[in-house]
């Protein structure tokens, strides 16, 4: 009995080692830094301080009293809103796409799946720079329009909110399509025929048959889009023009410019907390519904 437990333990030791070194250790370093004292020239000094967390909600007045400060709350709220909007847009586009692919014959399905994953072969930063060339004034689209006699700058979406959403939806759409496809592929399409036999309209069939069956995929896909979107950095900075900070840019600013590592670490920890909450909500929703609990 004892022997088998030990050998089991040794068996999974490599997995724990990898998780520990590459997953948990950096997280604990972050956590530790967030409670240390700021070194004015970057880095941290030894000592315990909760200043970084206090700073998130309050600022110190000249007499050292605390005043409520909404700057960072605004940034968090904007990041959550942006991530939610991205998730909804991905869902609206992703659901019909996944349904379409799931209804194709098998060889075509595999081809479509390959096409969905092709963008991952190139680095996201490079793909986002490509979007700059597409969206900018005198860019790929604007220059073509000029051939047809349009004024330069007719199509100029760079540094707008639309550009941010284009970038985010483009980046994370595959994360929505893949789990949706996984759940729709298993669907028995005779159910839809049955629905229409029973005089259900197409909309009713979608609402009462397809969407409930796709639910595990919807929840998983939404999480996979929401989580990276909330810390998104590249699209808001490069395509949105960086006129408004997001959580990702706030963290970057603290480390790169403000030289306030503890606060940057504290914001990262808070961001991680949001993600944990989202996962917990998912785990609860998954309970009793036979959804795959965790582990993507």
């Amino acid at each position: 009995m004892l022997r088998s437990t030990t050998s089991n333990w040794f068996g999974v030791a490599p997995a724990w080692l990898v998780i520990g070194i590459f997953g948990l250790l950096p997280m604990f370093i972050m956590l530790a830094i967030s409670f240390m004292v700021q070194d004015p020239y970057g880095g941290v000094e030894w000592g315990f301080s909760t200043e970084a967390y206090v700073q998130f909600l309050f600022e110190r007045d000249l007499d050292d009293s605390l005043i409520l400060n909404t700057i960072y709350v605004n940034i968090v709220a904007r990041s959550i809103g942006l991530a939610a909007m991205t998730t909804i847009l991905c869902l609206i586009i992703g659901l019909p796409v996944a349904y379409f692919i799931a209804r194709q014959p098998e060889d075509k399905r595999n081809l479509y799946m390959l096409l969905i994953t092709i963008p991952f072969w190139t680095n996201l930063l490079i793909r986002t720079y490509a979007w700059i060339l597409i969206l900018t004034r005198n860019g790929v689209v604007d220059a073509r329009l000029q051939w047809f006699g349009f004024e330069p700058g007719t199509f100029d979406l760079l540094y707008t909110n639309t550009a941010i959403f284009i970038g985010l939806v483009y980046s994370y759409l595959p994360f929505m399509v893949l789990p949706l496809y996984a759940s729709l592929e298993k669907m028995d399409f005779r159910l839809i025929e049955a629905a229409s036999d029973l005089y259900a309209s197409k909309w009713q069939a979608a609402r009462h048959v397809i969407i409930p069956l796709a639910r595990p995929g919807i929840v998983a896909g939404s999480l996979l889009v929401f989580i990276p979107s909330i810390g998104a950095f590249i699209a808001p900075e490069l395509l949105g023009g960086g006129k408004r900070m997001m959580l990702g840019s706030l963290i970057y600013f603290q480390f790169a410019t403000a030289r306030n590592w503890p606060f940057g670490a504290a914001v990262s920890i808070l961001l991680m907390a949001f993600v944990m909450i989202a996962l917990l909500v998912y785990a609860r929703a998954a309970k009793g519904q036979g959804l795959p609990a965790g582990g993507h």
């Binding site: 600022e59 700057i71 006129k243 410019t257």
Partner: peptide, 20 residues
């Protein structure tokens, strides 16, 4: 110049407020 922590904090605050 190399600013004191107090001066640097003011700069950071102005900038974060601008982009909040």
């Amino acid at each position: 110049q190399a600013c004191s922590p107090a001066a640097q904090k003011l700069i950071d605050r102005v900038w974060t407020k601008l982009l909040q």
